[in-house]
Design a protein around this nucleic acid. Structure first.
Lengths: 254, 254
DNA sequence: CGGAGTTTTGATCCAAATCAACAATAGTGG
DNA sequence: CCACTATTGTTGATTTGGATCAAAACTCCG
């Protein structure tokens, strides 16, 4: 590739300390203000709090904290995870630019931790003020409901993955999903860096780190992708999509 | 037990054909109108459509259908499930009286099927009219958001279950969860009938029907519960809760 | 460079799936 | 009502996908 390595997490124009401006944000078409009129976007801008920068591994919020804000990812990546009574964690999602964090907390307190996978920035959205705006901007409310609904559907898809799929299919789903999300953001669908460790991937997919490593090696050997450290290039996206859809019998690693 | 068998799904006072009345509904304290003032409950009553009766195995809605209504379960039980491209199903939840169905569809079309597990009744809630009401009754909107948020959290808990737990713990979680929900509805927490088949339970928990059957036998042998067909009585709820929380090492079936 | 963390690869094990057979139950129709 | 069938559930034998255990290779940084 003659182009510089794709960098889906690279900062958009962003001057820390300045208030966020949805109208100028590159994520406008994916984020909360999607589809709003200019005037309404300005009203949303009015209520959006400061931007917040987080370093790699820094925590945005923790389980049990009282709910105050939603967060829109401006750039960077996050993971969210739950911890049960026995101290075991389950990663419930990876979030990237334009995605909303914290919806599980609207019921009162946060039910998971959110941690930055790399240096990242979020817009803080005070929910109390957002609620006020809902009454005045019905299109905003409608889109907010759509986003929550999509989050429910996303989680149902993960349930399907964890409950029904074998390791190979899970991993294919994971790759194809990332690919589609990068594509929606204008990045290459076939070439991207994994922002999360093998351990995070394994935890999310209900597999061990060893299994993830083996799957990567196997997919590479089959010629379906190239891997170099965390950089991935999908060589046969069609095959991977077929695997993900379960339309293709698993090749038993001969 | 000298009492008649517990019947958590037995009809509340219900005259088919009549319009629903939230104020008179026994699920008032669990359902959408929870916490509303009388006047606001009446406004909600105004918009709620007909009740709808469903026979066992009858489908309330199907994947792909356009979204029109939410449904509140009046009595009976439902299951919701997704089907993937390969035709395999994953049950994403079991719903009982007072619970809301269809939130995953707000984004436009239904993403799962909902099927009655027994003769059941729902209140049809036209979402367009509910949206109108949101602007007039902020408390209703707030509670609606809380319900959606809780649904997200519930699904995250299932992800934790499917991604992290062994069969024994999954099954304990399942039983303890049912127990708590029946308790919240005023029924015995320790004695209830399973409304779903072993196959449904297995599908939901990511296990085979054989595994579910073996788990039931094993729990019975351990003296943690009694089973007779689909009727279950928890004999050692404390033990089951400990298992569910993962605080208790799995007893290796000696 | 050293040392901690991460990833890969190989050997072995085990929990749950699969395969198989049968028992119990619920329907169905005569 | 019973006989017959289909469905659902139980139990046992065997297999297997992925976990676990173990160790080496690589990477990242101070």
């Amino acid at each position: 590739m003659s182009q510089p390595m794709s960098l889906p997490g690279a900062p958009a124009i962003s001057i820390p300390g300045l208030k966020a401006s949805c109208g100028a944000c590159s994520m406008l078409q994916l984020c909360l203000p999607m589809g709003l009129e200019d005037a309404d976007i300005n009203r949303l801008d009015q209520i959006i709090g400061r931007r917040r920068r987080l370093a790699r591994d820094e925590r945005l919020y923790a389980m049990g904290e009282p709910f105050r804000n939603l967060y829109a990812v401006r750039f960077g990546h996050f993971k969210t995870y739950q911890i049960n009574a026995a101290g075991e964690a389950q990663i419930t999602g990876f979030q990237m630019a334009g995605e909303l964090l914290g919806m599980d907390a609207i019921s009162g307190t946060h039910h998971c931790d959110a941690v930055a996978l790399e240096d990242s920035e979020v817009c803080e959205i005070p929910f109390a003020r957002l609620e006020e705006l809902f009454g005045e901007v019905p299109a905003l409310l409608r889109h907010f409901h759509r986003i929550m609904s999509q989050e429910i559907t996303r989680e149902q898809n993960v349930m399907l993955l964890l409950g029904n799929m074998r390791a190979e299919q899970r991993f294919a789903v994971f790759l194809v999903n990332l690919s589609a999300r990068y594509a929606a953001r204008g990045y290459s669908p076939d070439s991207f860096g994994l922002r999360m460790s093998r351990e995070d991937i394994g935890n999310y997919l209900g597999l061990t780190i060893e299994s993830v490593s083996r799957l990567l090696s196997r997919f590479k050997k089959q010629g379906w992708l190239e891997v170099d450290k965390r950089e991935v290039r999908l060589l046969d996206p069609v095959k991977l999509k077929a695997l993900a859809a379960g339309l293709d019998a698993c090749s038993p690693m001969d």
